[in-house]
């Protein structure tokens, strides 16, 4: 079996008495979509935050692309190829969609300490950014400020940013949230193709999308992993049904 791109082991994080992450281990293999599901408050976003570097775990290790990244900051992890989208879209609101993505392109190209060349006339920035926006279907809206775009469109910008970063793994935190059924369907198809480029750790509440996409599913409850397996194994797991799925699945 191929070496995992991302491997976390025995991760722990407590907030006071709350065990938000309680000895979580999971990995992400090349070419797969690994879904992370669980009820609200199960610690999914907390886990993503620790992988991306916004939160520091109390214990445990995170290996990415063959190296321990536990001691690195957010910016350094992103430069190494961890492409993250946020549960609540996090963009530069005054900048156009294009300029938001150009920021990622500029980061990939190296230094931001260039003071004289105007970015809007720099085709090595605008062209890759435009290409990424077109891939997510936002080419026509590229020049509007992020603050004037719809909720769903802002999520698409986030994915375009992760694409432009040339990420080696994607951490997608509820990419379908706030999208209509049509948008979810298109995004599901898009993510299905994206896994060939880089594996995806997908946090998602839309179970149709999860069961359609995921090669493996990990279920979190109260910060602990209660089950890991293929979609079919998870669907019939009694503990998962009790904790999360109920009878809907």
């Amino acid at each position: 079996m191929a070496e995992p791109v991302l491997a976390i082991s025995e991760l722990r994080k407590t907030f006071g008495a709350l065990k938000a992450t309680d000895g979580v281990s999971l990995d992400l293999r090349p070419g797969e979509i690994h879904a992370l599901i669980g009820p609200n408050g199960a610690g999914k976003t907390t886990l993503i935050n620790q992988i991306a570097g916004t939160l520091k775990p109390d214990a445990g290790s995170i290996r990415f692309d063959g190296a321990d990244i536990g001691g690195l900051g957010v910016a350094e992890r992103a430069r190494r190829g961890l492409g993250r989208t946020f549960q609540v879209s996090s963009l530069a609101p005054e900048f156009s969609a294009l300029r938001n993505v150009m920021l990622a392109v500029q980061s990939v190209q190296g230094s931001s300490f260039r003071f004289f060349r105007p970015v809007m006339r720099d085709r090595s920035l605008t062209e890759p950014a435009m290409a990424a926006l077109e891939r997510v279907g936002l080419g026509a809206r590229a020049h509007l400020p992020a603050s004037e775009l719809s909720h769903g469109e802002r999520r698409q910008i986030e994915i375009a940013i992760a694409l432009a970063l040339g990420s080696k793994a994607f951490l997608l935190d509820e990419p379908m949230a706030g999208m209509g059924p049509e948008g979810s369907k298109r995004l599901t198809e898009f993510l299905d193709g994206l896994r060939a480029e880089a594996p995806i750790l997908l946090v998602e509440h839309d179970m149709n999308a999860v069961f359609a996409l995921a090669d493996r599913i990990t279920v979190l409850d109260y910060g602990r992993v209660i089950a890991t397996g293929t979609a079919d194994e998870i669907r019939i797991n009694p503990e998962v049904r009790r904790a999360y799925l109920g009878d809907e699945a």
Binding site: A52, T54, G73, V74, A75, E76, A78, R79, R84, F86, S90, L91, A92, P93, E94, F95, R99, N100, M102, L103, A104, Q106, S107, V108, S111, S112, F113, R114, F115, F116, R117, P118, V119, M120, L125, I161, L165
Partner: peptide, 24 residues
């Protein structure tokens, strides 16, 4: 108008976004 200015102005609007694309 430069790359530096883009990063600086983006950091004013949203610091987390700037760090998340790998710019400190």
């Amino acid at each position: 108008d430069s790359r530096f200015g883009a990063a600086l102005q983006a950091a004013r609007q949203n610091e987390v976004r700037v760090a998340s694309v790998g710019i400190p």
